[in-house]
Amino acid sequence: MGNEFLPLLYSFHFYLFGLLAIAAALAFVTRKSPVAAAMWLITTMFALAALYVMMDAQFIGVMQVLVYAGAIMVVFVFVVMLLNLGHPSEISDIRGKWGRLIAGFLGIALLAEILALTRDPMDLRLVVPVIPATVNGTGGIIGGVAGPLFREYLLAFELTSILLLIAIAGAVVLGRKRSAADAR
């Protein structure tokens, strides 16, 4: 396998995972059962993780699998099971024909606009500070992300920790079963 095949191989896999992501996403929104939908969404996330890795964001790819597919989606499935919603409800939760049609038109309009905007020559360099993603730097793959995270974005990082703390507290308060005395 010569080097001349590498771009082709790369492109093939890129399209493969891209199409897989889109196909899995389509399957996700059309499933009636929440569990099936969750499974298809997890598929999308795996495909996206592959794309991340292919775009030199190996750390993010790992995080995608661990945090998204491994933690968040598990919580979703867990809630679905907890509430015993695993089976498709007798009354369909999908809107009627006209609702789907109009939603489709709206989606196409949105897509067209987004694509038109990505074609637009916008100089993003003006608004985004350039921090080179050093793969071969001293910190390795993780250092490329960790460097900016703990230097330029330290305050935001600390704030997210507070956000998480609040989210935990909120989830506990909301999820707690209320006693009769509290129910006043």
Binding site: L106, L110, E113, I114, A116, L117, D120
Partner: peptide
């Protein structure tokens, strides 16, 4: 909300 988003984005499309 989506209608609003479409309208807003439409304003940026040249």
């Amino acid at each position: 909300l989506v209608l609003g988003v479409i309208a807003l984005l439409g304003a940026f499309v040249r």
